[in-house]
Design a binder for these strands. Sequence first.
DNA 1: TTGAAAGCGCTAACAA
DNA 2: TTGTTAGCGCTTTCAA
Lengths: 344, 344
Amino acid sequence: MKKGSYSPTASPTLSDVAREAGVSAITVSRTIRSPEKVSKASRLKVEAAIAKLGYAPDPAASALASKTSTTIGLLVPSLTNNVFADVVRGVYDGIEETRFFVQIGNFRYSALKEQELLRVFLRQKPAGLILSGFDQTQEATRMLKNAPCPLVQIMDIGPQPADMAIGFDHKEAARTATRHLLEQGYTKLGFLGARMDPRSQARYEGFKDVCKDAGKLDEKRIVTTLQPSSVSMGRQLFEALLAKTPDVDAILCNNDDLAIGVLTEAQRRNIQVPDDLGICGFNDIDIARNMMPEITSVATPRYDIGRRAIQMILDEIAEPGSVADRNQDVGFELVPRQSTARRR
Amino acid sequence: MKKGSYSPTASPTLSDVAREAGVSAITVSRTIRSPEKVSKASRLKVEAAIAKLGYAPDPAASALASKTSTTIGLLVPSLTNNVFADVVRGVYDGIEETRFFVQIGNFRYSALKEQELLRVFLRQKPAGLILSGFDQTQEATRMLKNAPCPLVQIMDIGPQPADMAIGFDHKEAARTATRHLLEQGYTKLGFLGARMDPRSQARYEGFKDVCKDAGKLDEKRIVTTLQPSSVSMGRQLFEALLAKTPDVDAILCNNDDLAIGVLTEAQRRNIQVPDDLGICGFNDIDIARNMMPEITSVATPRYDIGRRAIQMILDEIAEPGSVADRNQDVGFELVPRQSTARRR
DNA sequence: TTGAAAGCGCTAACAA
DNA sequence: TTGTTAGCGCTTTCAA
């Protein structure tokens, strides 16, 4: 076992390759970055030399000279969150086999922290940037306006992206889910929310809107917390809700974790789902879909958003201005299942 | 909305700060990296200048000059996996407020891909490297031996880490879980496994060991797949198992996702858990803990492993050779719950 | 199509 | 404790 001897090992450089190939360093650089600008003869010599020496470019030197790195920054509010786990997966799948890297920054739902991360990330001269939503600080917004790279704001929709945006309408999604509960014949609708970020807030507003319009809004049936979301939190919030308003007959949960918590707690209390209690989640994660009973949820294209966001960035890098639709609404889909299939 | 104009913006440099503070560039560099080597007077002047100009160092220039970047590489076999999500979280929490970045590489359970990622990562002159397990290719192992930075192999234990290691004994963990099932009076033990990576294999071996010793091994009650793990997969594997050996009375699942799938499928089939069927999961994730009935599982310190691994790296960076215990076994804990609490 | 020269912003090594 | 000098490995610019 080695101990504390981490000396840098020398790797071949551009000049080494150039010497080996009998050309100049810049010709090697060109064969790597734009082979079409190099004669076939040179190209072959260089390629042979690269192979022989096992050369690979030094990204730091390249970034310093060109003022652009191969790093794409991805700023997320949370790493615990299932939602962002899927986004991250999409982004990574999209980046694979390209010359780019992804660097994740976790700003823990703090706009100020996001701003500072942004500052640090920008120092790296990123090739692209992916942000969550539109709720940056003024200072962050200013930095974004001058960002020297393509950037995509994801998850939400809004009128004015700093550069590009892709997401869906959270308020409308909640409206749709709430209408579904009413249509199923539920009349005493409750709402459970944890970690009330801007998008959760929008869902909450959507729920209130529809309830109000239907004359069925009772604020006492709304329980939220700023703490992180989890299955246990779902149970706790449900308990709190029951303590306040035991007559609640359907619950819209801000996400599926909460919904699972409500379902399992209902089972413990022998509350029949969906007859005594309807449950609707949000996001449609695999587990919720497989519960017994299966949980109704709003399917959101999280993976797809990540995948598409990174593609937008890659396209813009390849050809600035080439992304035509710079403000995409990818929609959502209500998936009715057993947990709201009340027998009327 | 801007379109395709991503020109680099000039940021203040070290010399700008130096000029502002009335000192030399190297003094600024020193106040940032080792303030104790600078007089208080200089330090205050420099700090004021940094604040005034909003200076932040250019990591590329720094990496080029010092031959070490501030990037710490984290190579994981999967991003879908709950286990690695927790590890990643631990790593990110540990890196916060330091000057380092984490760059994740997803090698999709392919040792060859891991090797290629390693090669690419090493070109970045990483400040540290975190790898999963001990199953690197020969070529990768060779690269690791010469790695110019601290590295930690995580999740597993083994006799010979390349540099440092932290994990637990998967085989022993499975042994403990299997013994528990026998102690609870179950006699027809089955095993369900998805995505059989080396650590899953070890758990599988542990299960077989104990069953064999107890004279209760029946290979027909083992169903595994190379496909990814999920709740739906748990249901599928359970169905396959029941089709082969309907008399199975307890199942050790390779992870909690599978266990949840088994539980919900059992509920659909009206199989009573724990009386007709005992279920034991692996990892002890929040959801499994909150199912009805609550699922017995083997708690594994995933977050902690990530947190500690990054700390080992930071310690080694700060003071090479300072990490005393370079091969840590962090253990596991069986958490018996309702899903195996058979009434005898 | 190719190359020479200059320099990106920082740090290592040495000197004062 | 502070500064000077040189150069990390690449790309940009300009010229041939």
